[in-house]
Design a protein around this nucleic acid. Sequence first.
DNA 1: TGAAAATATGAGTCTCGACTCATCTTGTCA
DNA 2: TGACAAGATGAGTCGAGACTCATATTTTCA
Lengths: 180, 180
Amino acid sequence: MRADALRNRTRILAAAEEVFAERGASASTEEVAARAGVAIGTVFRHFPTKRDLLAAIMKELRESLIVKAESLIAAGDEETAFFDYFTFLVERAAKVGTVVSLLAEEGTSIEPGEQVMALTQTFGSLLDAAQDAGAVRPEVRLDEVMALLTATTHGALAAAWSDDLRHRTVTLLLNALRTR
Amino acid sequence: MRADALRNRTRILAAAEEVFAERGASASTEEVAARAGVAIGTVFRHFPTKRDLLAAIMKELRESLIVKAESLIAAGDEETAFFDYFTFLVERAAKVGTVVSLLAEEGTSIEPGEQVMALTQTFGSLLDAAQDAGAVRPEVRLDEVMALLTATTHGALAAAWSDDLRHRTVTLLLNALRTR
DNA sequence: TGAAAATATGAGTCTCGACTCATCTTGTCA
DNA sequence: TGACAAGATGAGTCGAGACTCATATTTTCA
């Protein structure tokens, strides 16, 4: 790949990440091109469809989220890792709309399942560890946790909750999972 | 108003209710017109903008939801009315996407606040009653309940939960509000 | 250095959905 | 019943956003 092509590809990805985070997945490709300082044709040369562009970003995003989870696991506190990660994701989603798309694959459905699957697996490890450590009630199932996560994440974004409300709501929710 | 005008208005509203319930608020006005068996110009004669049409339906919807709440209040069981209503709304939202728009005013923001306000007030009465009866923990606040409702409602729709998952998730959630 | 191949450009095409309006149709009422 | 105002019609306008392609630039490497 030519040097300028690589440089542009990088710029486009960075711009797209910003734009989609700010405006959500419905932001226009034109805006991404403008932000990257590149003509729109160039964007489409690198990513034939908007979906491809979204998919590329989601992949990066997913990987960064998984890295975060791994560092929490590595830190070794099973009792709080699960809760911290949940909170982290909701927080992140409130700022970065793309996280929401990633979790629900709403509308723009990218590589059905694969993206979310990896995240779900990661969450599964955290949940298992927390349950083994006795921090989360044993009858709580992974799909329920993912459902709560999807819901909170969507709600926080769509209804624009205040920081305070988001915090109280997440706390309430996590207490429902905690061992009594 | 002429007789045929009234008839068409009624047909349009009925068609719009169906179409928006099935396809969400982003369904086209053309489809509404087709379903109503009417030309698109006629729809716009009765409702100058799509937003007006949506607003008319939301008004009906909101009123029907409030009627449901009132019947629950009238039934007199404060301990279960709150939980039943929450469950009812989520169930409804899973089928009727418009409920979700109504709750979050996402994108299509209609008469900012007014629509939701009435629902919130109604929910406030149910919550107060349930707390007085000792069924819901006293520290739970109304805005938290509305946040949970918005979230669940969005999640259920966006992620297409199964009936079983939805049921388990709502149960989990409501147990978080219940007196221990 | 000077092609040739790879890239970039951006005006233009296409589609879709909201909304308009000149023209035709129908309900109403004297 | 006839005239006219209210209403219906649907082709057409407008704007937005995804995507294309003929042409202009670069990069690269013999």
